[in-house]
Simulated assay, not measured.
Amino acid sequence: MSTDSHPLSSSSTLVPGGALRLADWGVISARGEEAAKFLHGQLTQDLVLQSTEQARLAGYCSAKGRLLATLLAVKTGADELLLALPAELLAPTLKRLSMFVLRAKCKLADASAELAVWGLAGEAARAWLGEAAPAAVWGVTQRDGARVVRLPDGANALPRYLLLQGTAAAAPDLPALDAADWSWAEVEAGLAWVRQPTVEQFVPQMLNLELLGGVNFQKGCYPGQEVVARSQYRGTIKRRTFLFATEDAPAPQVGQELFHSADPGQPAGLVAAAAQRGGRGLLLAEVKLAALDEGSLHLGAADGPRLAPQPMPYLVGEPQ
Rank of each mutant, 00 (worst) to 15 (best):
V149G: 06
L67C: 06
E88F: 05
L85S: 10
A121M: 09
Q54W: 03
V148T: 12
R126K: 14
D144A: 13
A30C: 00
L57R: 13
L94Y: 03
R96A: 03
L89V: 14
W138F: 13
G77Y: 01
A111L: 08
L71W: 02
A127Q: 15
V101E: 02
Q45P: 10
T93K: 14
G18R: 13
Q54N: 07
Y60Q: 13
C61P: 11
G77I: 03
R31T: 12
R103S: 07
L43Q: 09
L82C: 11
A111P: 01
R56P: 00
G59I: 05
L115M: 13
V74I: 14
L8F: 11
V137A: 08
T76L: 00
R56L: 01
R21W: 04
T141L: 01
E131C: 03
A111D: 06
S112Y: 10
S11Y: 10
G41H: 01
T70K: 15
R56Y: 04
A113W: 09
E34V: 05
T141R: 13
L71V: 07
S29Y: 04
V140Y: 02
G41K: 04
K37Y: 07
L94E: 01
W118M: 03
A73K: 10
C61M: 03
V137G: 00
V48R: 07
V101Y: 01
L57Q: 04
A73P: 11
Q54G: 05
Q45R: 13
A135P: 02
L94C: 07
L8V: 13
V15K: 05
A121Y: 02
